[in-house]
């Protein structure tokens, strides 16, 4: 039996990923390596933010009439956020931003393709729309992994370092906890474990094409989906939530 609170929790996992990654990408505004990249990063951020709003609006409806996409985005503290650790990692240099994006995009596309077949029609509808946007994100980030991996000696070294440093944050994308299991059994969620093989195949092929080495490290960090985050999330929220917190009850 799937309780509404379980469905809501699952929707927060979906929505918070897009929200936090969009927030990170927006930090690049006006500072990207080229004007074309500024435009493209904003496009990806806008897509992810748009998707996050759809997931959070659905989650808010389950919570009740006083909740909205904004109360969920602006009035929860870090332990109530359900995003993956990967998306809250710092932008770093452009290789780090693109490696983070690449790992996420490949997984995100697989996830949404699965969710497009969800028995929950609303989830299926949002996923079917989002997957088209995300397919483009993945092509773009894979393109940068290859371009930087096979660019100059310096860019190769930076992209390899980024691929290695972010690797430990990829594990939790594929582990199903009790909540996932219950929703998978109900035909609502997509089994994350089933995404691992195709993800690894695509990541491996791209790294090969880029002349990069697939990391061998086995240890994986986890906790984001359960609300145990890195130190970074608190700062993201402090910045993002400042106005509604400073002016409680104001409409903007």
């Amino acid at each position: 039996m799937v309780e509404p609170s379980m469905l809501q929790e699952y929707l927060l996992r979906l929505g918070d990923n897009g929200l936090i990654l969009a927030q990170r990408l927006a930090e690049w505004s006006g500072k990207a390596p080229a004007l074309e990249e500024d435009m493209a990063l904003a496009n990806v951020a806008l897509d992810l933010l748009g998707q996050a709003r759809l997931w959070l609006a659905y989650a808010a409806e389950i919570e009740g009439p006083d909740a909205s996409e904004d109360t969920l985005a602006y009035l929860r503290d870090a332990p109530a956020f359900r995003n993956l650790l990967l998306v809250e990692q710092a932008n770093g240099n452009y290789a780090e931003t693109m490696a983070r994006q690449f790992y996420f995009d490949v997984w995100h596309k697989l996830l949404l393709s699965g969710l497009a077949r969800s028995h929950d029609e609303r989830i299926a509808g949002i996923a079917a729309k989002a997957v088209k946007e995300v397919a483009y994100h993945g092509e773009r980030s894979a393109g940068w992994v290859i371009r930087l991996g096979a660019g100059t000696a310096l860019s190769h070294q930076r992209m390899q370092a980024a691929i290695d440093d972010l690797w430990p944050y990829t594990g939790e994308m594929f582990t199903a906890d009790a909540l996932d299991q219950a929703l998978i059994a109900a035909g609502i969620a997509c089994d994350p474990a089933a995404l691992h093989a195709p993800w690894l195949e695509k990541v491996g092929a791209t790294l090969d094409a880029a002349g990069l080495t697939l990391p061998a490290a086995k240890w994986m960090q986890s906790g984001g989906k359960q609300g145990r985050h890195s130190e970074r999330l608190g700062y993201i929220l402090a910045e993002m939530q400042f106005l509604p917190r400073a002016y409680p009850g104001a409409a903007w």
Binding site: A26, S29, L35, M39, E239, P244, W252
Partner: peptide, 21 residues
């Protein structure tokens, strides 16, 4: 952009700054 007070305002501002680029 990172401090816009609602998600709708954030999306609009992000799109506006993108237009300027």
């Amino acid at each position: 952009i990172t401090r816009a007070p609602s998600l709708k305002r954030k999306a609009i501002l992000l799109a506006k700054v993108q237009d300027e680029g």
